[in-house]
């Protein structure tokens, strides 16, 4: 086990990276969904169609934000367990429902709000556990070449 002071600052860092990830993911998803609705062709196995879809500025901005979100999530995985990251980042679904309602005018039923509440409660419960339970701290020096 690592000492207490170090682990509490590590938890703080974990939560800042988590917040940054959620913001990027929400912005990226919304921008991409908005842009894709303006793209006339159906996507298929043809990669050229995806590249053409990225000519839409909303799709392009969305992709940029989602790439940054991917890198941020990788940093998060270096700080916390996968079984911690998965439930706490599910807060992103709550944000997606909310943004879908406000900006894309999707309907939100009572059942969906109940689901949102459960995601919040579950994520809070997981968030109260120790983020990293596999403290095998391998320093680059101790590690052999890959």
């Amino acid at each position: 086990m690592t000492n207490l002071a170090r682990s509490s600052s590590a938890v703080l860092k974990t939560y800042s990276v988590l917040l940054f990830f959620l913001a990027l993911k929400a912005a990226g998803n919304s921008s991409m969904a908005w842009g894709m609705k303006q793209v006339p062709e159906r996507m298929s196995m043809n990669p050229a169609l995806y590249l053409r879809a990225m000519l839409n500025p909303f799709v392009a901005m969305g992709v940029a934000a989602l790439i940054l979100a991917l890198l941020t999530r990788m940093a998060l995985l270096s700080l916390a367990d996968l079984s911690f990251v998965l439930p706490v980042t599910a807060i992103g679904y709550v944000i997606a429902v909310f943004l879908g309602k406000v900006f894309l005018h999707e309907t939100v039923t009572r059942q969906r709000w109940l689901g949102t509440l459960l995601i919040f409660a579950g994520a809070a419960l997981v968030g109260s556990t120790s983020p990293d339970t596999t403290p095998i701290d391998i320093t680059p020096a101790a590690e052999g070449p890959k």
Binding site: Y93, V97, A121, G122, T129
Partner: peptide, 17 residues
């Protein structure tokens, strides 16, 4: 606690979907 939280999140995601 983590297992219970994960199950609640899962139930929530299913309800939302």
């Amino acid at each position: 606690r983590r297992a219970a939280g994960a199950l609640a999140v899962l139930a929530g995601v299913v309800l939302v979907g």
